[in-house]
Design a protein around this nucleic acid. Structure first.
Lengths: 191, 191
DNA sequence: CGCGACGTTGATTTGCCTCAACGATTGTGG
DNA sequence: CCACAATCGTTGAGGCAAATCAACGTCGCG
């Protein structure tokens, strides 16, 4: 994997150049086109993925057949079915490429080894996890405390770059509303 | 701090007994009675807290004056305003003791030092964080995909021990519904 | 061009909220 | 230990935000 890309993946980390090299040797490039499924419900989840370009989403399919988007990922984000990735259980979600993407995958096995060998590696992912945790908590709070319109406004404010890459029905399924409701909200805001 | 308690706090961790001792030296016991406020909105959050006994809750107060419970914590759980604790920002939430409690607090400063000195300490909290992350994601999914009744059923199934310690209006504010709605749900389920 | 995917609009329904009143339970001071 | 108040939970009537169901534009693409 190319050096500039590797530096970008771990730009906030505190690695020596040898450490960086040995980590980079474990990342594998994957190219995806729009519509590709990176992961399906029921799969064993061996990898987490760094998004170098493009856009992906994790979604859950409920009993009624409705999709609920858990996560979007664009440049510089990591994406996986984390619950399955952390526990070893089968995936409950699906990951779909929604805009032609280049990603780099890293296996749980290699991560476990790196956690032991390179303390700074564990620090890097602990901090990533802290940030993801905060974002999720903010989302829970939004779901509890805000009506749909406010959640939509927060969304386009917090993820201006994602908004361009995704369809409105993806946003609706992320916010927990129907496409019709989102359409009406957007109409009202357009005034 | 007493050795048996210390062992319980870190029972899943892989520490040497010297490591355990030096960590234990940094934990401070705090006793709380029902109604005590451990942390208020606007505070600087210097500590995270291990609950040895009793029950606490983290809640957010919205503009309309409504409470939204983010987290309950009973025996063996850690509790804080994590967003403020991680970032150093002021707390946006409050933490209240809802059942006489004994807790042990650990400062961020000490944690940072331990992260550097004892890699197994970072592993311990990374894994804790992974579990918290999974729980939160499950909650987001529930909010998106389930009606109030199903969320209530999941709650009493997942937290049977907490249910005894908290009032119904605490549960309602956790589920994102009113006490009246919860009352009607319970009535319907009682049949 | 014509078809499928996406977004919009309208009519109606529904799950949950609001407001108000009233039991039940808990806690407390006399 | 009882009396009374405060807190907590329940019930009912009415309202609202968002869902459902159905139909119809519009855009992009094979």
């Amino acid at each position: 994997m190319e050096d500039e890309i590797l530096k970008e993946v771990f730009k906030e980390a505190d690695f020596t150049s040898e450490e960086l090299r040995s980590i980079g040797a474990l990342l594998r490039k994957v190219s995806l086109k729009k519509g590709d499924i990176l992961l399906s419900e029921g799969d064993t989840v061996l990898y987490t993925h760094f998004v170098y370009s493009g856009c992906l989403r994790t979604y859950f399919l409920d009993n009624a057949g409705k999709e609920h988007t858990l996560q979007f990922a664009i440049k510089d984000w990591w994406i996986s079915d984390y619950t399955a990735f952390f526990t070893g259980d089968k995936a409950l979600t699906n990951i779909e490429c929604i805009q032609r993407a280049t990603i780099y995958k890293l296996s749980r096995k290699d991560m476990e080894r790196l956690y032991l060998e390179i303390p700074a590696f564990e620090t890097f992912f602990r901090k990533k996890l802290e940030r993801r945790f905060m974002a999720l908590q903010k989302r829970v709070l939004g779901n509890l405390a805000q009506p749909a319109k406010d959640r939509y406004l927060s969304f386009i404010q917090n993820y201006p770059n994602i908004q361009q890459s995704v369809k409105n029905y993806h946003i609706a399924s992320f916010l927990g509303i129907t496409t019709e409701s989102l359409s009406r909200i957007r109409k009202e805001l357009a005034r």
